[in-house]
Design a protein around this nucleic acid. Structure first.
Length: 281
DNA sequence: CGCCATTAGTGGG
DNA sequence: CCCACTAATGGCG
């Protein structure tokens, strides 16, 4: 079992037993570590003690984050025309959209480099072309490399797939390393319907470490009643983590869903909120 | 009152 | 049809 698995297991345990406020000893025992070692591992991973983590984990906390983000940057998320390009993320991420039909007519001669690599939140499968990242998914038992490659080929039927573990390693480093801000902008290359693209754009506008809701996104894309459809579009996000679908939760404060598993969603959110606190202090 | 469980309504794929 | 949803509603302390 690697570190991420252990931490994930601990977090899940904490979540399930939140109302009992489990002690450090109890959690450490659960993941088969000594309290001392567990605390150190946890601190290294999250930058916070398990105790502090526990405190920040309540629903009240989630709702507070929600309230903070309510007023911020989401109200303007312009509908994006087909195939157009827009700069987002304070000019650090560049999202380029291609419709399925446009792809069919124009899109040959594309080579997609792909492979798996460890990330702070577990193994990921990544695909990228010369023009940008086109795929990023977390791996698990149901979604292994074989099926991920198959899915990639299905989405880009004319593309040539090439395994490239070196390239993938470099890419993953720049994606998950916060120092990426200093480097060149990330380019994303995605296919989707007009609706999906506008939703993914809205996701990119949620600031690091903050939360939004499905209904908020629906409002932001100018279709306030399409809440459920937004859920589907968010779920269809082809580039996990970079397009931050993990920052969207239910309006009542529940976590909602996540393709990579709820524990992982929770882990990423917690990590982000801690990172943000650190940056502020 | 507040806290839940249930449900009709919902729009895009 | 299927949904990574929500607001309204009613029951129960």
């Amino acid at each position: 079992m690697n570190d991420y698995d252990r931490i994930a297991k601990a977090i899940q345990f904490i979540r399930e037993n939140l109302n009992r406020q489990p002690s450090l000893d109890e959690i450490a025992t659960y993941v088969h570590l000594s309290p001392f070692h567990f605390q150190r591992l946890f601190r290294r991973w999250a930058g916070v003690s398990p105790k502090r983590f526990l405190q920040s984990l309540t629903l009240a906390n989630a709702k507070q984050l929600l309230a903070e983000s309510e007023l911020s940057t989401l109200e303007v998320a312009g509908q994006l025309g087909l195939g157009s390009t827009s700069r987002l993320y304070d000019h650090f991420v560049n999202l380029e959209a291609i419709t399925p039909s446009e792809y069919r007519s124009a899109g040959e001669n594309v080579t997609i480099h792909h492979g798996q690599e460890e990330s702070p939140f577990g193994r990921v499968f990544v695909g990228f072309t010369r023009r940008g990242i086109c795929s990023l998914d977390f791996c698990d038992d149901h979604f292994d490399q074989a099926s991920q490659t198959r899915e990639l080929q299905r989405r880009w039927p004319n593309a040539e797939l090439v395994e490239d573990s070196n390239g993938v390693k470099k890419l993953v480093n720049s994606v998950f390393e916060p120092a990426k801000q200093a480097g060149s902008p990330l380019s994303l290359l995605v296919q989707g319907t007009n609706f999906q693209i506008s939703v993914w754009n809205a996701l990119l506008r949620i600031p690091f470490g903050q939360l939004s809701t499905y209904s908020e996104i629906a409002r932001a894309v100018g279709n306030p009643k399409a809440v459920r459809a937004v859920g589907s579009a968010v779920g269809a996000n082809p580039i996990a983590f970079v397009i931050p679908c993990h920052r969207v939760i239910r309006s009542n404060g529940d976590l909602g869903g996540y393709a990579g598993g709820l524990t992982r969603k929770h882990a990423i959110l917690t990590w982000e909120s801690m990172r943000r606190e650190c940056a502020e202090n």
